[in-house]
Design a protein around this nucleic acid. Structure first.
Lengths: 224, 224
DNA sequence: ATGTGTGAACGTATTCACAGCC
DNA sequence: GGCTGTGAATACGTTCACACAT
């Protein structure tokens, strides 16, 4: 390791490493080399070593990394030691789909509420919870101790909903509305915009002959 | 402009610029400065000028950019001159939500088919189309002249579905399955993984006090 | 022997600052 | 005077290559 700050570019790759490590642990593998990790995660092995060095992680020269140790270490760096509680705003098609998404609970994220402004929707049962009213947001966030919010509203409602979420004490927001949202310092926002993704695909499809991109967002981002 | 190749970092910002330009055009604004664009898109003005210079775009010194001209130019660079035809594989909650997503048609993407492996699901009506069988993929892709596919299956099915899509002639894939997929050269893949996004939020929430990130995802991506 | 950890080299992206044009 | 377009400066990220630990 060098210093305390982990580069953003490294942070965005940690979830992929984590996933690979979980798979390896499930299959009973005890040890993995930077080459092994690199191949599974789709990056170079020097990249893996450099990334892990930023976590101060100790592998063993000539051997590799202890899968369980590294898994624990990466989890703890990402702050996944406690379960996170998520509230979803917007009970349209997308909000409902997200509320039912099975990948959440298995990765330590519990959806504690689904909220909508429309009184006709409030009270409906979706995936085990009852849709709550937007007006109850402050009470709900407090009672359920929600950390993270997902905004799955139309663009026109996104900023207002965001302001209300921030007022209610949420400090991390995943924004699915095709709209930039402003937040005060200290509130983290990430954006997922499907149309943008398709536009980028359209671009790279045209240019390709050579090759594509990523990110997922990397540049990346990820879901179903 | 300098040369022909547009940097990836620039390409991923073009959709945001496009969105801002569409809004400005709707509001009847004729002209915009790099400062105006920058503010609305949430980046610096030098960034905007540098990005646009890569497109060879001509603004007017002392005035700014012609909104309509620039809009057309950015659209054409992104390859959005013709409508793109999209097939969605996986008619679970997410696939259905995406099939109903209203942001698609308004941005030039038409969902021409929703496909699933499960015979119990095939034949159901979803958002105006009938769910088709995975086995009909080659015929469907050919008949509908689909360019782009969205993979909204469980992780376990993602690679097989991808292989079939590629065999059927699809050259651009948006992958929502929490699984890395391999494709031959010439096929562009972008990944959107919701759990990853939440994990990154969890990280930045902990670290913050200072500030957050983005991507999308490019590192950023975007959706509802 | 094998595979990590890391400085050094390289490449890419952002920001600065200002000359040049309207 | 105002705002673009761009070289130059800086910051950031990746890849190389090898000394060193096991």
């Amino acid at each position: 390791m060098s210093d305390r700050r982990i580069p953003d570019a490294t942070v965005v790759r940690l979830p992929s490493y984590l996933q690979v490590l979980v798979d390896l642990a499930d299959r009973g593998v005890r040890t993995v080399s930077s080459d092994g990790l690199a191949e599974a995660a789709g990056v170079g092995s020097a990249q893996v070593r450099k990334d892990l060095s930023h976590l101060g992680s100790y592998g063993t020269r000539g051997v590799g990394y202890d899968v369980t140790d590294l898994l624990n270490h990466v989890s703890s760096v990402l702050g996944l030691t406690r379960e996170r509680r998520v509230v979803i705003v917007g009970a349209g098609n997308l909000g409902r789909a997200l509320a039912s998404y099975r990948g959440f609970p298995t990765r330590g994220f519990q959806v504690v509420a689904l909220v909508d402004r429309d009184p006709a929707v409030v009270g409906q049962r979706v995936a085990g919870t009852v849709v709550a009213s937007l007006d109850d947001l402050p009470a709900l966030v407090a009672r359920e101790r929600a950390d993270i919010a997902i905004v799955a509203t139309p663009a026109s409602a996104a900023q207002e909903v965001t302001d209300r979420l921030v007022a209610a004490g949420v400090t991390a927001i995943l924004n699915f509305a095709p709209q930039r949202i402003d937040t005060p310092r200290g509130v983290t926002v990430r954006k997922v915009d499907l149309s943008t993704e398709l536009q980028l695909l359209a671009y790279y499809e045209r240019v390709s002959d050579s090759e594509g991109s990523e990110q997922s967002r990397g540049h990346e981002a990820r879901l179903a």
